[in-house]
Design a protein around this nucleic acid. Structure first.
Lengths: 132, 132
DNA sequence: CTTGAACCTCTAGTTACTAGAGCAATTATG
DNA sequence: CATAATTGCTCTAGTAACTAGAGGTTCAAG
């Protein structure tokens, strides 16, 4: 049986975050001591590691909740979540790359004149090339 | 003079968002009608367009506030903000690309066996290659 | 048995908005 | 000019995923 601090040390998830996950119904303590402190089993440790890793992969808690409650033999649903997340990541990369291009242009636009053209470029959409 | 709705139509910023910006001190109405409705001048329109575009570029409101309050001749500060934001964007792109690689691996890991290995891969950090 | 670390609950703050309630003002139409 | 439709007002609360702090209790070591 692990205390919440022990669990935190083993998974790298901060103590208040574990309590937050419990509140969100993603994890449950196995029980409490007479003094009302949480005690977690090995199962809890594994569950939390799962959440931790999935969060590191950028999955929102809602998707994680679905994964947790899912039948492990349900291929379709887990593949769907993975594919949706991948598409989302790719979309975000594409958008950020467009911003990067734009920011490079803005950063290079200043010729050192009186008023800084970096500043005006931040506000002027006319100068933009790609659609953002 | 524009009503808040007119301003919204011309800039593409939603009405409640304009009020929110006002509350945050980023924009101010020129005054109010006798019936307490906001009226904005051309200046307000331009200010809001600036904010809109800077937000589209992904700048946080705090940076925008700094830009707005800045002397337009202050090259150093505007260049610094642009450079910091560019570095931030590049960092995010790099991290997302690492996630992309990982998710592709996870998506391809399933061989159709009893329990779906996409599901287990979400929880198992051991299988990961790059550091995330 | 005492002390200090770890634990408890609860509230509020973060970012950038969005949604809704309940009411007042403005504008368009008959 | 009266009425109806639209737009506006303020205020509160909700979103995601936590983090920080207050104020108090329990646990483990010596």
């Amino acid at each position: 049986m692990f205390s919440i601090g022990e669990l935190s040390r083993r998974t790298g998830v901060k103590v208040p975050t574990i309590r937050y996950y419990e509140q969100m119904g993603l994890i449950a303590a196995d029980g409490r001591t007479t003094g009302n402190q949480r005690r977690f089993s090995q199962d809890g440790l594994e569950r939390l590691s799962f959440i931790r890793h999935a969060r590191d992969l950028g999955l929102p808690l809602e998707s994680i909740r679905v994964l947790i409650e899912m039948d492990p033999q349900n291929h379709i649903e887990s593949h769907r979540i993975a594919a949706a997340h991948l598409a989302d990541i790719r979309d975000r990369i594409a958008r950020l790359q467009r911003l990067e291009t734009e920011l490079v242009r803005i950063s290079e636009s200043c010729d050192g004149g009186e008023d800084c053209s970096v500043l005006t470029a931040f506000g002027d959409h006319e100068q933009c090339s790609g659609g953002h």
